[in-house]
């Protein structure tokens, strides 16, 4: 069943097409990876799907609803969450608070509720806190709940970004290079985590350069090059695709594509 369908997606920046008529289909429950050389338009596609940019042309249907002109916060509420390539945590806030903020769109306390702190508010606060701790346990950060986010080591910051995205209770989660800067052991833990998230019934769209991770985890791979889609299919098919090999030729990742 199709969860999200993007058609003819085109994004032009100052005369240059960062994305050129790309179609994307995401099926419910799958792990889809988006790969391609630097500057291929992967993050631009993420930004279109999450409402950071509005596409120059094309349409995006999520759960049978057009979302291309919605604001990022509305899209999050509809059930798409994301992480950022260059980590964007709320650095001065505690790890726990970062995850609590993630539940913003699933809660309702307003100014007056906050000031008077009636039973409903207190109940909600407790629920939010408990759920945040559950999520931190899930990603393995429960021990750091009280730390400031900016003081976490890099790998943990990446995991906190995922925890925060999970807290919005998404159906579709977009991970932008989650393994960047991680050592092999951390990457293995990450693969487990992504699998676990997928097992919870969440659909995953992943941008990643680590081919071992991509080939090991994805049910389907989509390849972008110069803003155009050049391949889309199961890993074994994409691995042997002429165009893909050509796009990566000479690139270290190219060898990896074939090696995996």
């Amino acid at each position: 069943m199709t969860l999200l369908e993007g058609k003819d997606l085109t994004m032009v920046f100052g005369g240059l097409a960062a994305l050129d008529s790309v179609d994307i289909n995401i099926n419910k429950g799958e792990i889809l990876s988006l790969i391609g050389p630097n500057g291929a338009g992967k993050t631009t596609l993420f930004n279109l799907l999450t409402g950071v940019y509005s596409p120059t042309r094309g349409s995006i249907c999520f759960k049978q609803r057009e979302i291309k002109n919605l604001k990022p916060y509305d899209i999050t509420k509809m059930g798409i969450a994301r992480t950022f390539q260059n980590i964007r945590l709320f650095g001065e806030m505690s790890v726990l608070d970062n995850v609590i903020i993630g539940q913003h769109c699933r809660t309702n306390t307003g100014v007056f509720g906050a000031i008077f702190r009636g039973p409903a508010t207190r109940k909600e606060e407790k629920k939010v806190r408990d759920r945040a701790m559950d999520i931190l346990n899930f990603v393995g950060l429960a021990g750091e709940a009280g730390e400031k986010a900016k003081n976490l080591p890099y790998g943990k910051q990446r995991r906190l970004e995922m925890a925060r995205a999970l807290a919005t209770d998404p159906d579709l989660i977009l991970l932008d290079e989650p393994a960047a800067g991680m050592n092999p052991q951390e990457t293995n833990e990450l693969i487990n985590l992504i699998d676990k998230i997928n097992d919870m019934g969440k659909t995953v769209l992943l941008i990643e350069h680590d081919m071992k991770l991509v080939m090991g985890i994805s049910q389907r791979i989509m390849v972008l090059d110069y803003g155009k889609k050049i391949a889309d299919g199961p890993p074994e098919k994409v691995r042997n695709d002429e165009k893909v090999i050509k796009a990566y030729l000479g690139d270290r990742a190219g060898k990896e594509v074939r090696a995996c």
Partner: peptide
């Protein structure tokens, strides 16, 4: 931007 992505 991250705040918007959290649904705020």
């Amino acid at each position: 931007l991250a705040a918007e992505a959290m649904g705020i």
